[in-house]
Design a protein around this nucleic acid. Sequence first.
DNA 1: GATTTTATGATTGTTGACAATCATACAACT
DNA 2: AGTTGTATGATTGTCAACAATCATAAAATC
Lengths: 243, 243
Amino acid sequence: MLFRAVTMKDETMKADSKGIKRLPRVTLSGRIAEEIREAVLSGAFPLGSQLNEMELAEKFGVSRGPVREAMQRLIQEGLLHSEPHRGVFVPELTDTDLSDVYYVREAIEGAAVQRIMARQDRKDIHLALMKIAKQMEKTVAQGSWMQVADIDLAFHRELVESAGSFRLSRMYATVQAETKLCMHMLMGGYRSSKALVEEHELLANLIAGDDVAATLRELSRHFGDPIRILRKANAVRQGSEAA
Amino acid sequence: MLFRAVTMKDETMKADSKGIKRLPRVTLSGRIAEEIREAVLSGAFPLGSQLNEMELAEKFGVSRGPVREAMQRLIQEGLLHSEPHRGVFVPELTDTDLSDVYYVREAIEGAAVQRIMARQDRKDIHLALMKIAKQMEKTVAQGSWMQVADIDLAFHRELVESAGSFRLSRMYATVQAETKLCMHMLMGGYRSSKALVEEHELLANLIAGDDVAATLRELSRHFGDPIRILRKANAVRQGSEAA
DNA sequence: GATTTTATGATTGTTGACAATCATACAACT
DNA sequence: AGTTGTATGATTGTCAACAATCATAAAATC
């Protein structure tokens, strides 16, 4: 089953120094928003498909109210798209969207790079990024492209979070979610290869170095041209459908 | 009265080529979200204050459901802050928040500047920005600092929207809302002067020019150090309270 | 008087029902 | 056959009531 029934058991309770646990401070709508978010990002709902609030409520074992509230959150975030009186949909992403997502990613990551590289000590971020790159290397050898993509995203998320800006990270979370949706479009075009690992290692090393301009140029190169990648992916897919 | 009762009359209906108007496609919750948003941004709710959903529902003449949905939107946007079971609050912005808002503004506007300046023809954006600067000049002479601040924000919004990225503009709308909240903190520190107008004119001219690096430097200079401005404002305010 | 316990009122969170809107199927008309 | 009108069912939007939680005041205890 796609969804688990939502209960209020909070598995992340932390104990304070006296062994007393904090009580859960999450609403049903918050939990549901997370569940739906993960389902959308995992590709469980095809692009363009409608989310039926009655079905979701039944599946979660709750009333429609919290489901509606959860969806309002995701709509505002940009992950879902509402058409009043007609329903809530997973957006269909166009070429324009794809370009836009990558443009904005680059803007955010560029800002992060500049802030990080203005610091004297970059050992920690270098270490963290190289560690993720090593993980990617292992997964390229024996995992699926989706797993590699997830590590790729983790690398970039680490980079942005290292900038230490709450708002930059929040914006990036949304953009990464949209990136993940885009990846379902790019499926055949995602380059899961040793060269990809090397690109990430190069980025990590440049960030540890002193040439900001070169780092930003490499970041831009790293993103490539998503539209061309998509076209290539479509060509490959059409080629195999015709055969 | 702070709020008007919300009806479904859509004042922005557009006529198609046959004079046939589109029907309204906005829900109560959407309208309410806008009303609350404007109220918060106008300073009607002090920073840190609680929004009471029962009172709001009564004032709008609707049930609590749409009010809750509206608030979920604004919470997700970052304009309001929810504490489960305790209520929804206008955030209290700290020095850290102030710095963060301005950092992120600069990141977004910097990206917009770079994209705009990669274009050959910049006459339109130059014209639009100079027009807003001229408006600011008039308002400096005879308006309130709040009005000047609004024009200032319009200048920057024009700049970002000229980049033509849906997502950049969406992110910037949120950041501008937070900027507006910050401005209530900066009240006495907002420099409503002829020099401010000149700074904007300079930015417009640099954008029309060819030196990207110089433009980005001026943009950074233009934002100044918000913390120092806040401290100065607080000092001025404390000075007049002691007298 | 200080601290703990209990009661109360206010507010938030959720539910289920009713109202409104839309999409589709079917019937009637040209 | 094509178009228009009507009915029906599905889904979304809103409402009012109940449940749950919190903050505060009052009472009890030390």
